[in-house]
């Protein structure tokens, strides 16, 4: 069932793309090209969710992680006049937030939803309070024209000429998929998220693995935030992440906690946004701007409504691990 559905989506997408490409190749390529920057922060944020939930920790603090990382990445980048330094600081901020979440949920065994809410509120508060106007970074990360691949007809112009974080992110997503399904780390992580006492009795430290994964996930959240501030937009505003961290959770569910599934779901989101934008620019449809900004949220609700009850989250998700209860 699952495979048939995904094949259907892929084939339909290719056919649609071919049709529009034959109608107007330039506009079609550019629409698909812009889908990627829309999709990437969602995809990376969804990876944060995948990494955490696969080991059994619910992370609804992705939004806050991205916001505070975007903040530190932007302002440090601006103050030091060095966006690479900004990127480093952004990722390290994510690591710290990840560690905070780990301490709260793994060591203190706090309710994981509340821990996530704390992170989100703290992030919104701190970034609003410390926000200052009139700062700017020297430049955003510049697009890379990939030599050979960029020259491939049709596909080349779409996948080439994105910024470095985009490529880093995409490589990470594929890497995460391989790691999750093909390495001991992945098998252990998944078993910790499904049935932690099995892992424990097999000599795998549940606490250690959860700490590692939530912290690395924090770094990925930092990368997503830094991407927004330093590569996609180049500025920082209050409430800058605009709910992407929450949308990412829907994407993660839609992608069935699978990195590639979530990536595909994020691309679908990005594409729908790119298409709507294009329709607005062409004035094909005349709808108020507000409805366009609503689109990601409406899609989120639709997706959750469609997939609710049909998907199966990791079984141990949200439950602190108690060793003596084996």
């Amino acid at each position: 069932m699952r495979f048939r559905l995904s094949y259907f989506v892929i084939i339909t997408s290719i056919l649609l793309f071919a049709y529009f490409y034959s109608q107007n190749s330039i506009v079609t390529s550019s629409v698909v090209f812009t889908a990627i920057p829309f999709a990437l922060p969602l995809a990376l944020a969804a990876m944060v969710g995948v990494m955490c939930e696969r080991t059994g920790i619910v992370n609804i603090g992705i939004e806050g992680t991205m916001l505070v990382s975007a903040f530190t990445a932007f302002f440090l980048g601006a103050i030091l006049k060095n966006i690479s330094a900004g990127l480093f600081v952004g990722i390290m901020t994510g690591v710290l937030v990840g560690l905070l979440l780990s301490v709260m949920t793994i060591t203190w065994k706090m309710d994981q939803i509340i821990a996530g809410v704390i992170i989100n509120i703290m992030a919104a508060g701190i970034t609003s309070f410390l926000y200052r106007q009139n700062y700017s970074i020297p430049s955003t990360f510049t697009p890379i024209d990939i030599p050979v691949i960029g020259d491939i007809p049709v596909v080349g112009p779409i996948i080439s000429n994105h910024g470095p974080i985009t490529y880093l992110g995409i490589i990470f997503i594929f890497g995460l998929w391989v790691a999750l399904y093909k390495t001991p780390w992945g098998l252990r992580s998944r078993s910790v998220g499904e049935h932690p006492s099995s892992a424990d009795t097999a000599g795998v430290s549940v606490v250690r693995l959860r700490y590692i994964n939530v912290t690395i996930a924090g770094a990925v959240g930092g990368l997503a935030g830094s991407y927004l501030a330093l590569e996609a937009v180049g500025i920082f505003e209050r409430g800058f992440t605009a709910g992407k961290g929450f949308t990412a959770l829907a994407i993660m569910i839609f992608g069935r906690w699978n990195p590639l599934g979530a990536f595909a779901a994020a691309l679908f989101f990005g594409l729908s946004q790119a298409v709507t934008n294009q329709l607005m620019i062409d004035e094909v449809v005349q709808i108020p701007q507000q409805f366009v900004t609503m689109l990601p949220y409406v899609l989120t609700i639709l997706i959750l409504a469609i997939s609710a009850g049909k998907v199966r989250p990791p079984a141990a998700e949200g439950i602190p691990y108690e060793k003596e209860k084996v």
Binding site: R190, H195, T201, A202
Partner: peptide, 12 residues
């Protein structure tokens, strides 16, 4: 040790 409650991951 073979535990009373099986220490097996059900989905694997």
């Amino acid at each position: 040790m073979v535990h009373q409650h099986f220490q097996l991951v059900p989905v694997m």
